[in-house]
Nucleic acid binder design. Structure first.
Lengths: 182, 182
DNA sequence: CGTGTCATGTAATCAGTTACATGATTCA
DNA sequence: TGAATCATGTAACTGATTACATGACACG
């Protein structure tokens, strides 16, 4: 069965790539490519501490001048084992809560132009995302030539591209249907 | 700006269609068509009570034999106003947390056949969803002929179809890429 | 005779973000 | 001069699910 507490495994997964700080993990998650997961400092730092008490990570303190010390976390052998175990287990589909679609569903309560306005905003948001994704895809394809394991990052990006495309296509159709109503 | 507390507006939206009980709202949300929103009894019942104290809904108790009384909620004029106001406001994109994609991202830590297994499960889940969506689409198209405001339900379903298709297409490509690795 | 449906409700729990504090440095 | 970056951390809060209680009836 699928296990909760995914945050800890996301963190372990990144530390398995290379040792890093909580700040680094947050930065990585903010890159457009990791658009399928988010995590706040309020989760990252306490989790990192917990992972130490459980023996899944270790820390090295790097002194810095002027800036706060960097606490660099490393994954332990036990941490790697637990990560692998989790990766092999099944997963749950996320519980979706799409506020935008709620506004569309109840669109008959407001003038059609209101729904059209929302859809245009939605479309513009995903157009922007698309641009970034396509740019990232180019970079990814270069990286993959050098490092074969980059294929997994590429696959997650590829899903993002497919879905963004689907949303944009939906926007086009939805606008056509609703614009007839005005 | 977008407003939190979407649950209350989802509930108001349904009550605006027709008077109903908390149980009815939960049932509606469980239909495949509303695959973009979920709500538990632990949220629905307390929210319904709160909406009464705020004057946005009213209740009628329907006595039943053998079964518990049905508490039927109706939206008030004030409730309708607040619903409309909310519908006109902007929205936030949902914060996504896709456990499946995390397992794909860290796929280089486990054998390729593990990732392939996950993708096949993902594919099968969306194949099933697709079947239901297509069935629902047929029904929807009939309903739309009679009732023009059904177009909004149809649009939400249509987005579900587009996205499920995109995911399935991604599965096909991802499997092709990973099966070369074995 | 066990499971599912109808129908309401709450307490306990969990998961997670937000907002704040600290403080030096760099950049426009 | 004020904003952004680097870097860590926690307390308060919110939002939501889970698990339970109640209880009759219908279905196979």
């Amino acid at each position: 069965m699928a296990v909760k507490n995914v945050s800890r495994f996301v963190i372990l997964g990144f530390l398995n790539w290379r040792p890093m700080t909580g700040y680094d993990i947050k930065k990585l998650l903010e890159e457009e490519i990791y658009d399928f997961w988010s995590e706040s400092y309020g989760t990252i730092y306490p989790t990192l501490k917990k992972l130490i008490t459980e023996g899944l990570t270790e820390k090295i303190i790097e002194k810095q001048e002027g800036k706060p010390d960097r606490i660099i976390y490393t994954i332990t052998a036990v941490g790697q084992e637990q990560l692998q175990e989790w990766l092999k287990k099944s997963f749950d589909l996320p519980r979706i809560r799409n506020e935008f679609l709620v506004k569309i569903l109840f669109g008959d309560t407001v003038p059609p132009k209101t729904s059209i306005m929302h859809i245009k905003k939605y479309r513009d948001m995903f157009k922007d995302k698309m641009k970034m994704y396509i740019e990232l895809e180019k970079q990814m394809k270069q990286k993959m030539k050098k490092d074969k394991k980059e294929v997994y990052s590429y696959l997650t990006l590829l899903q993002g591209i497919h879905i963004a495309k689907a949303r944009l296509e939906w926007c086009r159709e939805a606008l056509t249907i609703l614009e007839e109503k005005i």
